[in-house]
Design a protein around this nucleic acid. Sequence first.
DNA 1: GTGAAAGCGCTAACAC
DNA 2: GTGTTAGCGCTTTCAC
Lengths: 353, 353
Amino acid sequence: MRSVRIEEVARVACVSPITVSRTLNKPDTVSEATRNAVWAAIEEVGYIPNHLAGGLASSKSRTVGLVIPHITNSTFADRVRGMTEVLRDEGFHLLLGISDYSPQVEFQHVMAFLGQRVSGLSLTGTTHDERTRSMLARAGIPVVETSTTTGTPIDMMVGYSNEAACYAMVEHLARCGYRKIGLISTSYLNNDRTVARRAGYQQAVKDLKLAQDPGLMITSEIRLAAGAKALVDLLAAQPDVDAIFCTNDVIAVGCLLEAARRGIRVPDDIGIAGFDDIDLAQEFVPALTTVRLRRYEVGSVSAHLLVQRIRGETPAEKIVDLGFEIVARASTRRAQPTHQQRDSGHVSSRAAR
Amino acid sequence: MRSVRIEEVARVACVSPITVSRTLNKPDTVSEATRNAVWAAIEEVGYIPNHLAGGLASSKSRTVGLVIPHITNSTFADRVRGMTEVLRDEGFHLLLGISDYSPQVEFQHVMAFLGQRVSGLSLTGTTHDERTRSMLARAGIPVVETSTTTGTPIDMMVGYSNEAACYAMVEHLARCGYRKIGLISTSYLNNDRTVARRAGYQQAVKDLKLAQDPGLMITSEIRLAAGAKALVDLLAAQPDVDAIFCTNDVIAVGCLLEAARRGIRVPDDIGIAGFDDIDLAQEFVPALTTVRLRRYEVGSVSAHLLVQRIRGETPAEKIVDLGFEIVARASTRRAQPTHQQRDSGHVSSRAAR
DNA sequence: GTGAAAGCGCTAACAC
DNA sequence: GTGTTAGCGCTTTCAC
């Protein structure tokens, strides 16, 4: 398929090819009359710029790569939305890869993206294949790791402290009077965010002298049915649990559904809390106490940072903490206002922005 | 950033550049000894093939474009998953664009993707900007439109009949004894799938001599809160509605939640049905009667069709009907088995595959 | 099975 | 403000 080339546009517009190129890429360096003539010619011949050729010649591409662990989850869907909207406004395009939580698959995507000469790259978390780190170090393109603010960044980071968020939620549950709090987390294999969330829970349980027992921590897949089953399993093993903190809202709603089916009263018999603040959390009956994150902003801020760096600017911060917020709702008892509003962990976090 | 080029690999491996290229792209045309030497050299110098240059020289790219209306919806998330998994296995990569239901934005993405010389393209539905159609006709790359099997295809199609699915659901509701069925659809602006769904509802209502009234059809956004509000609005305008068919499960669950809050008994006071069979549909109490679609397959089959055509093969079918299935659950009354299993509309549809 | 030459379509650098 | 020249890194074509 030999396509219409810049040369043909140039001929029709009676200018040189480079002028056409400039009209497209640096319009303000071309006089208005020329610009109009070129645009008319472009329309006339039906020219579509070949970004492959342009990218090759300029060693710049208008593409950014994103690798996410999976997509069936509003955390990542919102991030994709945040990135695509900003990138579109800035004239960039998004190459998407899904790693399914495998660092090896992530590495393959990174390789392929580098082969496409992406101008920037966004990854999830800080757990990567060693080759990913070394390739990226050599490639010298801006990289944003997201959804965490801890660990050793490759370059930049946008997220929140998973550990602090979980610590804050356990504190909140303790203020609600819960003393034996179970934790249902997602699998923590290759998932530094989950590891951090578990650590936050454990630290808080220890600091607040709540019931400690390895049997209180179990894992579940992110599906409603799995969350329901996890509730059953946890209650079977630890019948006197008085609250359950799920590191994911889908799991938490699964628990709420199962509790309803079994006639377990929430929050009286048991308190249930989640993580993410998905749409369903506030609509569900009872509404779910949870940790609110700024998912869309994780994407939009990442994209902004990448674009800034691609343009050669230096962002104010290499690590952006978007904070979190404990949202108390009906699935947990009312908190006693003993301490001063320590919930406002998010306030300080946000201030860090 | 001057990167390691194929020439350097060639020098280290003591072969010519073209041999390196062949080792990478057509390994079986190179002797094993040479292949090994080349691979060793690639590792040694840390070579990353430049797909921009390769694509330019061969006028082929290993990239496929996908434009979806939005991403915060399992319909599209599953499709993305289906596409990426197949494409990854086939060595292709995915450029993602989100159009927000705007044909103009879609056109911009299509232009940009053609500029990247994507080898194939997948769009949603058949409502496009006229320029999109003409560009694509000229570009001559394989195109798959999805989520419908009606309308005039640009090239190929993968989906299901939205009209037949909604017709079947109204039939089902009629067999359940419902006679005045409201419809809450999404906005049908630039959305041929919704237009078809509404048409299916209207035709069935007419054929089955159910209550007909323009006031029975309203629209809602795809959010739980919006669905809840839509229920309230519909009941206010049409108090004697005995069933509500929502063309989206999220809206339907919003209705169920609102019904629970208002003490409206489902399915006795009112029957509620949805469309999509999201995870929540079967877990919710009461479980939601809905239309099950094969969302993942929409993506995976699309990707397969595109890859086949990119390879120069000719797929057996240009239009793949993946069918649908009426899933009867607790949110509607039991159906009377009067007619013979006409629900098996999906069986014939699937047979069409 | 391997190589040499030519060129894919564009833009950087420099000239005018 | 616009044009000329050279070359981005690879693959095609044809030769051996």
